[in-house]
């Protein structure tokens, strides 16, 4: 079902639940994987995904259709991830590297994470990047998003995003080279 049709159905109380159910089915994987790559742990990603869709439910009536629906949902998911990670740091008074170390430990120990050595090394290298740069990398590298779309979600210029991505690639290559 097209987004426009989903939104029209959502606007009517009798078809609201059905439309929302279809919206969740349509976007759940994109939202979940975006979050999962940022927070690593499945339970955290599950909680945040549900929270994202609850916010979508609450605010969908006010959604301005001049933006794409998925861009809007992606932005909510992005904010949830960034807030979650920064509150994790505040809660435990942890600097960036300690959160990265905690998440890297999960990569080594979680049965939900599989892959050969180089794949796991790539994930650990990603954890060394600042949160926003990691988001940019994930959107470009894994989701093949255009810089213009990323720019709309993060509110950063295309030029700055290109520079951030190329810098991220350099850092990752350096990390894998020396670890």
């Amino acid at each position: 079902m097209e987004d426009k049709e989903l939104l029209e159905k959502f606007a009517h109380p009798e078809s609201r639940n059905l439309a929302f159910n279809q919206l969740v089915r349509k976007y759940q994987q994109k939202v979940y994987w975006q979050i999962r790559k940022m927070v690593i742990d499945h339970d955290d990603a599950d909680d945040l995904t549900q929270e994202v869709f609850f916010k979508v439910w609450k605010n969908l009536e006010n959604f301005r259709q001049d933006a794409q629906l998925y861009t809007w949902i992606y932005r909510i998911a992005t904010n949830e991830c960034l807030n979650f990670l920064s509150s994790k740091r505040r809660k435990f008074f942890l600097p960036l590297n300690d959160v990265a170390a905690e998440l890297a430990e999960k990569i080594d120990s979680s049965p939900d994470i599989t892959g050969d050595e180089i794949q796991l090394k790539l994930q650990k290298a990603l954890l060394r990047l600042p949160d926003k740069q990691r988001l940019v990398f994930n959107m470009k590298y894994y989701d093949d998003m255009k810089y213009e779309e990323i720019s709309e979600i993060l509110g950063t210029s295309v030029g700055a995003l290109k520079a951030s991505y190329h810098l991220a690639v350099k850092k990752i290559e350096e990390f894998i080279k020396y670890h």
Partner: peptide
């Protein structure tokens, strides 16, 4: 980076 095949290492229940 291009030497590594793109793969999702995370699993879900």
């Amino acid at each position: 980076l291009n030497d590594i095949p793109k793969r999702n290492v995370y699993k879900v229940p």
